Simulated scan of single mutants.
Amino acid sequence: MVALAGCSGAQTPLDPWGIQAARIAELTHVLFIGGTVIFVLTMGFLAAALLAPGRVRERIGSRRFVVGGGIVFPVVTLAALLVYSLGVSRALTLPLGPAPLRVEIIGRQYWWEVRYPDLGAGAVTANQLHLPVGREIELLLTSADVIHSVWIPNLHGKMDMIPGRVNRQRLRVDRTGVLRGQCAEFCGLQHSIMAFWVVAQEPAEFDAWVARQQAPVPPPADEEQARGMQVFGEAGCGACHTVRGTEFQGRLAPDLSRVGSRLSLAAGALDNHRGTMAGWIAGAQDIKPGNAMPAYGRSLEGTDLLAVAAWLEALR
């Protein structure tokens, strides 16, 4: 059971959730099986050469056997595996349909900006990718600073994100659930804490999510939330963050319009609830040193930190 623990779960290429990942998993199995067969045969011939009776060793050492087993067999076998691998690689780039849903993902130090240009203004989130089940998706991948690499093991292989260039990756998710993606290219101090969640939804549920994203956020529901919104503005948070339907329209940091509904904070560094929200605002540099978020633990009172966290938690 321990040996099979990595064969399923929210971040493994051996548990494919889509056709592209299934092709990659099949390629993996074929190459492992092929390599194993070659290794076993080689070790078998080595054992025979060392331990077998003299006549057998003479046959193994004959020119015909050396040419057949040492040249013809590996050339034919490896060539077949190469042709098969190239065929799978080409299949991964072929479109499944004429009109995929485009999703822009921009890698930043150290978080992910996600936009849905086909769905109109307001369809923006951060560190969480929502996808409709059964529909082909085209990821438009780029970077705003250094080279990153996006990897959702259950859906596809790795793809680099290069400043000034847009790389494209097509995929499809075939079942609902939650998966984990990761930056797979060292991009700085907090590279290891640069993850995101992939939420695969039925089309109707996905459409409802998009509608919520596009709608202005509701007004504060009580005095504490109103105070939190006020402190958010007074502390200058709106210069970096956007909260749709308010005066806060910053573009330097994650869009917080529906941050309360996200599964994590700080690109997978923390679970998302009021306590971790307040802790992140107070000590972002202690939790994730080197990120662009300043720490407000010394400039804000504890009640104000909790008020801001209460307001942001209510943005769902």
Rank of each mutant, 00 (worst) to 15 (best):
A3K: 07
A5K: 10
G6A: 10
D15W: 03
G18N: 03
A25H: 13
G34C: 01
V37S: 01
V40Y: 06
T42R: 03
A48I: 02
V56C: 06
I60F: 15
G61D: 11
S62H: 11
R63Y: 11
R63S: 00
V67K: 04
I71Y: 07
F73A: 12
F73H: 06
F73E: 04
T77I: 09
A80S: 14
P100E: 05
I106D: 05
R115D: 06
Y116N: 00
Y116C: 00
L119C: 07
G120T: 02
A123P: 11
V146Y: 07
V146A: 11
L155V: 12
D160W: 06
R170S: 05
L171N: 06
D174F: 01
G177K: 02
Q182L: 13
A184M: 08
C187W: 02
G188N: 11
L189H: 09
S192R: 12
F206P: 00
D207V: 08
A215M: 03
P219I: 03
E224F: 02
Q230C: 07
V231I: 15
E234M: 11
C237H: 11
H241P: 01
T242M: 09
A253R: 01
D255N: 15
S261T: 09
A267W: 02
A269K: 15
A269Q: 13
N272Q: 10
R274V: 13
G275V: 12
T276L: 07
T276K: 06
Q285F: 03
D286L: 13
G297P: 09
V308L: 00
V308P: 00
A310M: 09
